[in-house]
Nucleic acid binder design. Structure first.
Lengths: 154, 154
DNA sequence: TATTATACATAGCTCTGCTATGCATCTGTT
DNA sequence: AACAGATGCATAGCAGAGCTATGTATAATA
């Protein structure tokens, strides 16, 4: 590939972003003594954002394989953080929905995470926090667009 | 905590950040078919940023346990991405240094990663990229300096 | 010199996520 | 209607990452 790329800095930026966020998630994991897997939280977050959906759909959204999602859902079902609802149109499929306990768990996790990381960001002023906030929004958009490909009108 | 928590939004922001970056790293991992562990790249990045250091120090910086770092370093040594240099002052310790192959590998990884993710960010304009760039800088500061203190305290 | 602390190595476990495959159900063609 | 292939989820089994507990050699200290 010849270097016609107008923004080689973008590549550097993105790899830096990945590096720094890896570090951040490690800090979060160690600080909270987290025992639930990231994929599980992604799954709950997806359900929280988009509502009930099929297991396979959930796998794509959470970026894990279908068998992995089968396991995750089984675990979540055991602790009653989600409910399995039979799909009336397709006997092979389930609709996976957040259960009240799952909503609380997700909320608790966010609190814990925020509390654990907040001290690191104490020194930031309003404007700097605003920058991070805008960046998160942008990242959300850029990573969700892909999801739109996958998500069919339900 | 004497922190009166003036910004509950900060906690939400941080958990959103963690969520979205988890997603991003999953996308990156799937897009590049990555087979080297994140911790390994963190390790190389640390060495690249701070220069040679002892194995234990490297473990703290990379946010893994010492035995895990022993494994990582052993693997990196086999493929000659790092060199082990005997510590002249302490026969128990090693100085771990990036080898030329490691420098190239790190550079290649950054290229691949950037290339894989760049398409997602095609629609962003200069100003938006600048926002993300500043956010990455801020995250770097917050996770580099403070994190070291937190670890040592623990 | 004896004791305790430190730095790294080893052993062994658990958990997560993967591929390959199986089973049931749906869809389309004849 | 019946069969063939596609699809949705479950199961089996594997590989890798990272952990705790512990071992071994060296340093530091009393």
């Amino acid at each position: 590939m010849t270097n016609e790329n107008p923004t080689p800095e973008l590549q550097t930026l993105l790899s830096d972003l990945v590096s720094v966020t890896h570090r951040l998630t490690r800090i979060a994991a160690q600080a909270t003594g987290e025992q639930t897997s990231p994929a599980t939280w992604r799954t709950l977050s997806v359900l929280s954002s988009f509502g009930p959906m099929r297991l396979g759909e959930l796998a794509k959204q959470s970026r894990v394989s279908q068998p992995t999602m089968t396991k995750i859902v089984a675990n979540l079902n055991e602790v009653e953080w989600i409910r399995r609802i039979a799909d009336v149109d397709d006997a092979r499929a389930w609709q996976i929905a957040l259960a009240p306990k799952g909503i609380r768990a997700l909320s608790d996790w966010r609190d814990k995470l925020g509390a654990a990381l907040a001290p690191l960001f104490d020194d930031l002023d309003r404007e700097e926090i605003e920058v991070i906030s805008r960046a998160v929004d942008l990242l959300h958009e850029c990573t969700d667009v892909r999801a739109a490909d996958v998500v069919k009108a339900a």
